[in-house]
Design a protein around this nucleic acid. Structure first.
Length: 205
DNA sequence: TATTCGATGTGCT
DNA sequence: GCACATCGAATAC
């Protein structure tokens, strides 16, 4: 695979516009001679200006600093004492917006991902969750402040394909629940399925 | 300095 | 469907 790397200007736009276009793009990590890659299938937008679920909601702290960098910067944070989550910073420098990467479809380096996700029972469990992605790809806070267009972790264009993007409420948050800032590819099995209706049927899919 | 709790994943019921 | 591991960041004091 040899897709074109997305330029900085792709990210320096309205955050929702960027989030809607992320599904289908390819995340590529170079580890020496090895390549890990996967297609993004699910993301969530976080908007500092009006979104109480956003880490950069009306405050500037040591943790959320990378979110104020220019679009195209990587923001990785540590949660629940165990896990890391990967975000792409969007919008202009000084604005605290980012997009959380929640679901990826593995393409290359699947053998390596399996070794790092020893608990994953199926190939779908490898990268269908924000912390799972970081485990499979070996991403931690060292990637904070790195750029998505010139490092060993980059984002590229994807296949020319048609798919339907579904918009829904976000997952795992207690505030800002009303915003439909989650975007994912319809019927893709690598999308997380955390929301259920009362009869146990997964919704948002 | 102390306390609370989280943009999750896993395992058990 | 639910408990819990586990610890750093944020907030309270």
């Amino acid at each position: 695979m040899n897709f074109k790397t997305l330029p900085e200007k792709f990210y320096i736009r309205d955050t929702i516009s960027v989030a809607k276009e992320l599904p289908g793009k390819i995340l590529v990590k170079k580890e020496g001679k090895k390549i890990l890659s996967g297609k993004i299938v699910e993301v969530e937008a976080y908007i500092g200006d009006h979104d109480p679920a956003c880490h950069a909601y009306k405050k500037f702290t040591n943790r959320n600093k990378p979110m104020y960098e220019a679009g195209g910067t990587i923001y990785v944070y540590f949660v629940y004492g165990n896990y890391h989550c990967l975000n792409f910073v969007t919008n202009k420098k000084g604005i605290g917006d980012a997009v959380l990467i929640r679901g990826i479809e593995p393409l290359e380096g699947i053998d390596i991902m399996k070794r790092r996700r020893i608990k994953a029972k199926t190939i779908y469990d490898l990268t269908n969750g924000p912390a799972k992605i970081c485990l499979a790809f070996g991403i931690d806070k060292r990637y904070n402040y790195k750029k998505l267009y010139n490092g060993n972790l980059i984002l590229t264009e994807g296949y020319k394909e048609k798919f339907k993007i579904i918009k829904s409420k976000r997952i795992g948050i207690n505030t800002g629940k009303d915003f439909n800032y989650r975007f994912f590819i319809k019927d893709n099995p690598y999308v997380t399925k955390h929301e259920f209706n009362k009869t146990g049927i997964p919704i948002n899919n």
